[in-house]
């Protein structure tokens, strides 16, 4: 190296300089993102585990927060309201899955055929999916109006006036189905395009082979389409379940968890405990439980998908 002529030395340096300068540049390009993620995602995530073990309040009191062990978890897990919230979220999931995914699949099947203006219709059917949930709440609150809203008019018309108007969002029996209906309307578009992508991935030769075997449309649907969509079904199921556990906006706006706790959800319970009642420790325990539920559901997906491969 030392014996090299000055010419090659400078050449070598010139080639090496961008390498080292390059590393600093790389660091400069990577650090902003990493710093933001560390400060606003990793740090709050880790500190939720610490806070959950204390009786910390949202607005600090003169008395410092103290370590309370697993008290918060015990309080949450013995709270009837929390179990009701979990039960409600499970009810929501069981109701929304068939409605939302069934409708999404039906529309996807319609749009997957030869149809004039197909792209136009796809765009139209996707409109609710780009509508903000807050806006959806404004619209559907008027649709659910008691006693003269359109839903009550339709029910009255179909039953020839036999069925009395229903207070959809205020009746404990109907509050959750009402939330399910508006959530399904808002979100089915996403499942619809996922199913459309899945349907387009099915090879035509499968259908041709089924035709040669004399299968009718119905048989083709059950024996070719549905099995081929297995991956899509699993994906849609998991995503919808995870979203159901995060249910918050529509409940917070329209029912505040009521009537009589019938639409209380896990996230709304956490929000009430931590933000409204300032009990940060308790709310962090709920947040951690929520995290592990979401993690478990995702792991189930990984297992099922790997099983398939």
């Amino acid at each position: 190296m030392i014996q090299m002529s000055t010419e090659t030395l400078t050449a070598g340096r010139r080639r090496r300089a961008p390498l080292w300068g390059g590393r600093f540049q790389e660091l400069g390009m990577l650090l902003p993102s990493l710093a933001l993620i560390a400060a606003f995602l990793l740090l709050p995530f880790l500190s939720s585990f610490r806070i959950a073990l204390t009786n910390e309040r949202l607005i600090p009191r003169p008395v410092p927060a103290r370590f309370v062990g697993l008290d918060n978890f015990q309080k949450v897990l013995t709270d009837h309201d929390f179990w009701q919230a979990l039960w409600n979220v499970a009810r929501f999931t069981v109701m929304v899955l068939p409605v939302q995914c069934g409708f999404a699949l039906a529309i996807a099947l319609l749009l997957n055929q030869k149809l004039p203006f197909r792209n136009f219709f796809r765009g139209l059917f996707f409109l609710p999916a780009i509508t903000s949930m807050v806006v959806v709440c404004v619209i559907w609150a008027t649709l659910f109006q008691y006693p003269t809203g359109p839903f009550n008019q339709i029910v009255g018309f179909l039953s020839f006036g036999m069925v009395q108007p229903i207070d959809w969002l205020g009746d404990p029996a109907w509050s959750m189905p009402a939330i399910v209906l508006l959530s399904a309307w808002q979100a089915y578009g996403f499942q619809m395009i996922v199913y459309l992508a899945g349907l387009q991935g099915i090879s035509d030769s499968l259908y041709e082979a089924a035709s040669l075997d004399g299968a009718n449309r119905w048989q083709k649907f059950w024996h070719v389409t549905m099995p081929s969509l297995r991956q899509t079904h699993v994906f849609v199921l998991i995503i919808t379940t995870i979203q159901a556990f995060k249910l918050f906006t529509q409940v917070n706006i329209l029912t505040q968890g009521g009537p009589r706790g019938t639409t209380e959800t896990v996230v709304h319970y956490m929000f009430s405990a931590g933000f409204v009642n300032q009990r940060l420790g308790l709310a962090s325990a709920v947040a951690i439980i929520l995290f592990f539920i979401v993690l478990a559901v995702s792991l189930v997906q990984r297992l099922v998908v790997r099983d398939r491969k």
């Binding site: 390498l19 390009m29 990577l30 740090l43 709050p44 995870i242 962090s284």
Partner: peptide, 28 residues
Amino acid sequence: GRLPGRAVILAALVALYIVPQESIVLPL
């Protein structure tokens, strides 16, 4: 890039991706 530890950072990011926003908002 050529920075060391890129694989570790990537793996950490993929792991963090599962954390739902809802469960970090209060500490945040």
